[in-house]
Design a binder for these strands. Sequence first.
DNA 1: CACAAGCGTTAGTATTGACTTACAGTTAGC
DNA 2: GCTAACTGTAAGTCAATACTAACGCTTGTG
Lengths: 103, 103
Amino acid sequence: MAYQAAFLALADPTRRRVFEELRRGPRSVGKIAARMPVSRPAVSQHLGVLKKAGLVADRAEGTRRVYCIDPNGLAAIRTWLDQFWDEALAAFQAELEKKDSHA
Amino acid sequence: MAYQAAFLALADPTRRRVFEELRRGPRSVGKIAARMPVSRPAVSQHLGVLKKAGLVADRAEGTRRVYCIDPNGLAAIRTWLDQFWDEALAAFQAELEKKDSHA
DNA sequence: CACAAGCGTTAGTATTGACTTACAGTTAGC
DNA sequence: GCTAACTGTAAGTCAATACTAACGCTTGTG
């Protein structure tokens, strides 16, 4: 049930942009906020949501806080996606067989 | 840029539950709403959002409207996920080499 | 032709949440 | 110790949205 938070976190465009910024590598909060159209506290809040969703991880580095990508969040989404796809495909084939037995 | 709508659509719990209900196979609006804690118009609106996101498709069947899963929406998310993962992995390895050249 | 079933749409409401400003806490340098 | 740099947090505001109730439209049935 972890994909719930992940989907909710990635739904917001600004927050996903923050997340995608970390795709280039680990960054501090200030570095990220400098490239964003919103204020630094807003970025900090977004990072908090992403962290709770298991999408990012943070480590203290002196006075600044460096964030990087946490694979767990994306893995949760991928798992959900694969499982969903398998079930849907199975249901689809079951539907076909039902119509075959009809003929 | 199609994953934007898909993520936004799957973020809402009720809407995702509607979507997951179609995993079992094609259903009419009434059938879905019967298993939901919200009213039928709410389900209809959710289905509209899912349709615009390319996650479901509908066909008229007499007086009732049957919805089924549209692979396009999920494919968009999968594409984004794969691409994101590749870039993040490349950045991670680049980070490692940078530290190697440091030694 | 009238009636009922099944949906989509609209208007209106209440709640969620993204954002800014101001403040408090922690760490490096003089 | 004192200042500056960097960040998380709290309170408040405003826009987005999920929901219900009421209505109108289309299709099958007597």
